[in-house]
Each structure stands twice: as structure tokens, then as C-alpha cells.
Design a protein around this nucleic acid. Structure first.
Length: 301
DNA sequence: GCAAGCCTGACC
DNA sequence: GGTCAGGCTTGC
């Protein structure tokens, strides 16, 4: 599933293969992939040159420049769960679920957007619109400062796993890397962000950066659908320590990796290395009801 | 029936 | 404002 490392890999591929080139034609075969009007999407992109590629969290923004100097336009790409953006020869066979074609330059190659689940979205935006969309996201997980990271954790309740996955707080982590970062930092996924020690928060910050940097270097994780701009899989799958390793021995201590549903998402962790947070009752004043760190529906295997 | 990212809407 | 549930989609 595309999270920050996979999206970064696609962004790098776009820079390598598509920067400076011109979109000469756009074909949309499935309107639901386009956020907003498909007609407007086609008319605003056609004829423009790809002049810059940036990324924030899981969103890719491609700057599109017109020859006549009219207002800049941006192509916003969200891969969703199974989205693939590739640079492909025009005469290559068309794979199933290919929904959008953007012909480049002389027509020998094209950008193709393929997405079996159709959770992905393409969108054409003005710079003001883009700013608004990206402004709603928290700082990018690879660029967030430790101070920002810590401040965002303060007073947060709920599971730290859900906090990590909330794109409005820190952008870029999904289910895979959230589990891996918590394992790396030895933090139980149900811990409350506002209650972890400063030392643990520091370790989590380091773990997030470390896990993401390693995954970017290996081109991300491919289970089935994710592919880079050339249609090649990522190599991080074998580096995963807990995600989808339920029942297998922990690489650190040998205890079986467990699975638990948190916020509707499966979470994988080592109960030994990532001890469950204690019910922290404030032992001052009259006895108040003491409850465990996190409430909510929990299903454990 | 499950998995996922992201959006919407309900609730306090 | 935070927090959580539901819905989209389809290959396995």
C-alpha cells in the first residue's frame, strides 16, 4: 500500500522520467478517478509542461506550466490503496484497470494511471487550491522537526497508532510504517500520545525517521499492487519486522507477534518488547475512578 | 469477508 | 475541537 516511501519513490521516478516533458493529450476512461470535473481536468492539463514535482505526506503535486504564461496549474496525485502511475511506451499493452492516459511529447510515451480499487484520485488545481489541500495536512513525516512532533503528541488521547496514521497531524504514515515505527521504538500501539515519556517520544521520532528513510532507500514495500514509475516492485517487504508477521517469533525476543484491531485497522506488535501501557492513576486527591490507558472496542487475537 | 486510504458525518 | 464509525472498491 502506498505510504510515504512508496509515494516518494514514485515522485522521484516522475522527476527522472517526466520532468520537462509536455502533456499533449489526456484521456480519462473512468471519471470517478478524477476529483472534480473530468472535462476540466482534461482541458487544464493538455498542452502544459511538467515543471516541478513535490510531495507532502502521501500526496504528489506536479507543477504544470503553460507556454502563454497563464496561471500555474497543479496535478495532485493520490495513489490510494492500489494506484500506479507509470511512464509507458504508447504501444505497450494496456493492463486492466488503467483509467487515465496522459500522452507525452511526440506521443511515443505516456503517463498511465492504473488503480484496481479506485481509491486513488487525480485532481487539477490552481496554486491557491493546492495550498489549501496541502495546508490541511500535518508536517511531512520525513521533514517534521522533533519539537513539532512532540508538541503534536501533547495532550492527545486515543491510541498512538491512530495518532501516527492521522494525516492532519503528521503526514505520510499508513498502517505498515506505523506498526514498524512503534516496534522500533518499543511502544505499545494503544499507548496514549499525551502519556508517553519524553524519552519514548524521542525514540518514536527517531524510529519514524529511520524506518521511512530505510524504506525510501529500498524503493518502498510491495505486497501485490504497488509499483514504481517503471512498473517495478519495492524491496522493503523483507525488512518488515511486525506488519503481517502475526504468530511469527519477534526478531528481538522470540515472543510471538500479535495482532489487534485498533481504530478499525489491524495492528501488529510484540507484547514483550512493546509492553502495554499501565493504567496511570494520579495518586493525588480523592480516589477517582481508575481506568486503563485506552478505552474503546478492542479485539485481540 | 477482509484489507486499505481518505472522506463524510455523527457525537460529545 | 477531538474521536470514531461507515462507505467506497475488488482481488484474494
Amino acid at each position: 500500500m502506498p505510504e510515504l516511501p512508496e509515494v516518494e519513490t514514485v515522485a522521484q521516478g516522475l522527476r527522472r522520467r517526466a520532468l520537462g516533458r509536455r502533456i499533449v493529450a489526456v484521456e480519462v476512461h473512468h471519471d470517478s478517478i478524477i476529483a472534480g470535473s473530468a472535462e476540466e481536468f482534461v482541458s487544464t492539463l493538455t498542452g502544459r509542461k511538467l515543471t516541478n514535482v513535490s510531495r507532502k505526506g502521501k500526496a504528489i503535486a506536479v507543477e504544470l506550466t503553460a507556454d502563454d504564461g497563464s496561471e500555474l496549474r497543479f496535478l495532485l496525485v493520490r495513489l490510494g490503496m492500489t494506484g500506479q502511475l507509470t511512464v509507458t511506451p504508447h504501444d505497450a499493452p494496456i493492463e486492466s484497470h488503467t483509467h487515465v492516459f496522459m500522452t507525452l511529447d511526440d506521443g511515443r510515451e505516456e503517463l498511465r494511471f492504473r488503480d484496481a480499487r479506485r481509491f486513488g484520485r487525480l485532481r487539477s488545481l490552481t496554486s491557491a487550491e493546492l495550498e489549501k489541500v496541502l495546508g490541511a495536512l500535518g508536517p511531512d513525516a520525513q521533514r517534521v522537526s522533533e519539537a513539532q512532533f512532540m508538541a503534536s503528541m501533547r495532550n492527545r488521547k486515543g491510541a498512538i497508532k491512530s495518532w501516527l496514521m492521522n494525516q492532519n497531524l503528521v503526514a505520510g504514515l499508513g498502517n505498515i510504517y506505523a506498526d514498524e515505527a512503534l516496534f522500533e521504538a518499543r511502544i505499545h500501539p494503544l499507548s496514549q500520545p499525551g502519556r508517553v515519556s519524553a524519552d519514548k517520544a524521542h525514540q518514536l521520532y527517531k524510529a519514524v525517521r529511520k524506518v521511512l528513510d530505510r524504506a525510501v532507500r529500498l524503493g518502498g514495500t510491495t505486497f501485490s499492487d504497488y509499483m514504481d514509475i517503471e512498473g517495478r516492485p519495492g524491496a522493503f517487504l523483507s525488512k518488515l519486522r511486525v506488519y503481517q508477521h502475526t504468530g511469527e517469533p519477534c526478531r528481538r525476543c522470540g515472543h510471538a507477534i500479535r495482532r489487534m484491531v485498533i481504530g478499525g485497522r489491524s495492528s501488529h506488535f510484540c507484547a514483550q518488547c512493546q509492553p502495554r501501557p499501565r493504567a496511570t492513576a494520579k495518586m493525588r486527591g480523592p480516589k477517582k475512578s481508575v481506568r486503563s490507558g485506552v478505552r474503546g472496542k478492542l479485539k485481540e487475537e
